[in-house]
Nucleic acid binder design. Structure first.
Lengths: 337, 337
DNA sequence: TTGTATGCGTTATCAA
DNA sequence: TTGATAACGCATACAA
């Protein structure tokens, strides 16, 4: 593969001139510039980022750590997040190195990922809640941003994050159900090891409390964000003696699974059971009935997160974290009592 | 960040000894080895792949080109593919560099992607059918594998690919409908610019022909693989004077959209219209009614493709392409006439 | 405007 | 068993 030396030889100049042309320095004669460009074209030369990275000590690439754990990864939601990430990377001209993080490996050695491939920063998507490794890279001053994994209140203040207002969104959903006259409200929760699962549960509990409704442990079922567990947890809830009249699911997939469970039992949504989801994934609009859910700006979150990260890298400053607004989208899966 | 030199100084040896320890060479005294390992641990040293890559002329990373075009990227199907890709990369210890390829940029300069970041090979997912750039990297001997984008019959023989038997699968689906007594069979096709869209269309047409059924242009509607176009194309089909009794959709998402359209019109699936999909995504099993569809081994395809690619890279041989079997999964969305 | 020397971190090769 | 030297491709600093 052609290097600057080859180009230089072909153009009859020194390789430094080639380097200057590539880096668009001004101090190079237009004639020689043309000669060099011609040689570059003819040889199909492209700069080698290894050499450049070694020299400049940066690679113009970021590492993206994404949870492969179980089914999370195959969720529309994470894809949408990734699309936002990808978009900003493309705009900024940054490469994306994917680090799928398996849950079975226990701890993730972010430091290693960072150092080995010499990425300029790390985007860490949905890290486990208990993640001492994060503290290590804070101390080592590795530039990183946490996307979708900030547990409100409990986090290290020095950690920059981008996340939806999970507590607020959950609260809005539950308050809506209460306002529609519901009192027996169950919750199909997300994984406790994931921050947004915990935050949405928190929003659920605190809103009940604020409205003077005591929560029943029976009414809280932990799922894993997949449609299938939504289905089974709903079946469980339907089997209760004192059946809830409404269910708030921690995400849309589980809500859709829950709807199916209700309908299969011969009951109706929202006739017999009202259901609210979270995320507003594309299919929420098209489910039957259309799902009332908490909309979050998923794509924008991914986009913002990388923007923040790259700004941090370039300006070497401490960016502000961002909590993105959520908004309840009322469709047809809730009946007022 | 610590380099081999730093480790060497700390351990009181030369940096070559450090290099040897890292590369697990045998010719190093156990005592010195322990000293070095201790220093490595204390300094938090990790090898710098830039330096190594520059020297060895390989990076142990592959480039994954994936279509961001429109909505394709956010499809469960591609995620499943990616999971397989990721899995084998993890096993082989290879890094994954993601190159999202926008359709608006026209041609994709694979050569550039390959050379710039010095990946060891490229996995090209669902390239545009007319892709002259592919021929270029064939000529330049860039190791690459095409995943899910091989148009049966028409491709350059030297291109290694992994794909499902799209023609065969489509054929099986349509034959099944015919065997159930259907004659008026429509097709909601995928994008023509994507090979599997074309191949499934081909399977549809050829199977009708084989059974002596002439195809009507009215009965072929081109969608873009999303649920929403499935919905609209089905509405169009329902509006025809001579309504079809069965529809073969080029993927499950469109099939699910189509089911919704039928049901919204007050008709039933499979009562009034039978529907068959392709892919067998998770939600196919849970749709209402459960979708009869062509199962393909999506995860395994991703896995196999990388396996092939990495074998090619390591052994510098010309691997065989693989066509993966498909299998019709009969559920409840087809009625026999 | 252009060219030369140097070093980034690593490994291959040869010498001790 | 260990160490010295050169080279990979590039860009910075300095010299011509």
């Amino acid at each position: 593969m052609a290097s600057q030396r080859d180009v230089a030889k072909k153009a009859g100049v020194s390789f430094m001139t080639v380097s200057r042309v590539i880096n668009k320095k001004i101090n190079v004669d237009e004639n020689t510039r043309q000669k060099v460009l011609k040689a570059i074209r003819e040889l199909g030369y492209y700069p080698n980022v290894l050499g450049r990275g070694l020299n400049r000590n940066k690679t113009e690439a970021i590492g993206v750590v994404i949870p492969t754990c179980s089914h999370l990864f195959s969720t529309q939601y994470y894809l949408e997040l990734l699309r936002g990430v990808e978009q900003y990377c493309a705009i900024a001209g940054y490469g994306m190195l994917l680090y799928p993080a398996r849950d079975d490996s226990g701890m993730i050695d972010y430091q290693k990922l960072y150092q080995e491939r010499r990425v300029d920063g790390m985007l860490i998507i949905a890290p486990p809640v208990k993640d001492d490794q994060l503290k290590i890279i804070v101390k080592k001053k590795v530039p990183f941003v946490v996307l979708d994994g900030h547990q409100a209140g409990s986090s290290d203040k020095r950690i920059v994050f981008v996340d939806a207002d999970n507590r607020g969104g959950a609260s809005e959903a539950v308050q809506y159900l209460i306002d529609q006259g519901h009192k027996k409200i169950a919750h199909i929760a997300g994984w406790k090891t994931v921050a947004n699962g915990r935050d949405r549960l928190f929003g659920y509990k605190s809103t009940l409390k604020k409205n003077g409704i005591s929560h029943k442990d029976d009414y809280i079922r932990e799922g894993d964000f997949t449609e299938i567990t939504g289905y089974y947890k709903m079946k469980d809830l339907l089997g209760l003696k004192d059946r809830p009249t409404a269910v708030f699911a921690a995400n849309d997939l589980m809500a859709i699974g829950a709807i199916r469970a209700v309908q299969e039992t011969g009951l109706g949504v929202p006739g017999d059971i009202s259901i609210v989801g979270f995320d507003d994934i594309p299919s929420a609009k098209y489910s039957n009935p259309p799902l009332t859910t908490v909309h979050q700006m998923t794509f924008q979150m991914g986009f913002e997160a990388v923007k923040l990260l790259i700004e941090n890298i370039l300006q070497d400053k401490w960016a502000e974290s961002r909590v993105m607004e959520t908004k309840l989208v009322v469709r047809e899966s809730v009946k007022s009592l």
